[in-house]
Design a protein around this nucleic acid. Structure first.
Lengths: 155, 155
DNA sequence: CAAACTGTAACTACGACGGTGGCAGTAGAT
DNA sequence: ATCTACTGCCACCGTCGTAGTTACAGTTTG
């Protein structure tokens, strides 16, 4: 089935906060960009705040800001803040201890799956919000030069 | 939420088929080891058959056998046979094109997530059913020697 | 006080999942 | 030929996580 889209929302929001770092953004502004709902955004940013990635101020003119420099926040930070359990699900029930394979497979799978998940997380940890923001600005700059399209086929 | 437990079931079944390679196993026998249901097992083994990992024979004395040598079947083979879509979910809706970040984040995330998923799959591809079976037999041998426990604290 | 925010609980709709029963088809056993 | 033991497949159920929404209490600024 796959995980939730919370990671995508979290990374999107963090990139927005990095882009407009001077001022704080409200959950409504971020929800507008997501074509979604302020409550959903607050739920996810709440998790990011619990993880120490952002902070919020209440009341009028309140909103959200980054708690660290964009280059100090990796995609793995965002992922692990909003996504809980393991990715590769284990046995729904413990297998039968009567079976020679059933007795041991669970423990062995645990190690294998854990290694595989770690590999994914390690890869996520190599990209930062700063890196993402840089690419966003780059692509935006390309849009501003319609006469010189990026990497044309015959160039 | 994480993926389904189909991968775990598939790997469990493949390891059993490798262990009793001489004779074919029925879905009921495998379900017994899983403490689960023959229909569930047939559903998953059906996917493995479609992927060319096992074959089945109908009728009395029918059952399931490996279609390849255990060392030619990786955990990634099992995983990709039974698990469909992406692991890290993308945006539920496309973000707003009005937003400078929303315009580009989806494409960028796609690349990042895809790389991360590939890292996990690559790691799964490094372990084979033969490797798993060897460890099962090893642990079983240790159980047969109660006087010499494996790796005691003071050894 | 009024306005604009966060924070949180409650609720809905939907989809995927594990699990179950039923039944047609197939092949060996007698 | 019939019985038996399988696969293959469909339809269904209860449960759970998710996205989305409404509602409302609390907080800060103007």
């Amino acid at each position: 089935m796959g995980l939730s889209s919370r990671s995508a929302v979290a990374i999107h929001a963090l990139t927005m906060l990095a882009r407009w770092g001077e001022k704080s953004l409200t959950s409504a502004e971020i929800a507008d960009s997501l074509e979604s709902n302020p409550v959903l955004v607050r739920r996810i940013l709440g998790s990011l705040r619990d993880a120490g990635l952002v902070w919020s101020t209440e009341g009028r003119n309140g909103g959200w800001s980054l708690a660290r420099a964009p280059r100090e926040i990796t995609l793995h930070d965002a992922y692990s803040a909003v996504e809980a359990g393991p990715i590769l699900s284990r046995h729904a029930h413990p297998p039968s201890a009567e079976c020679e394979v059933g007795r041991h497979i669970q423990g062995l799978l645990e190690g294998e799956f854990r290694d595989a998940e770690r590999a994914m997380e390690e890869r996520l940890g190599r990209t930062t919000i700063a890196h993402l923001l840089r690419q966003v600005l780059e692509r935006e700059r390309e849009l501003a030069l319609p006469d010189r399209p990026p990497a044309p086929a015959g160039a």
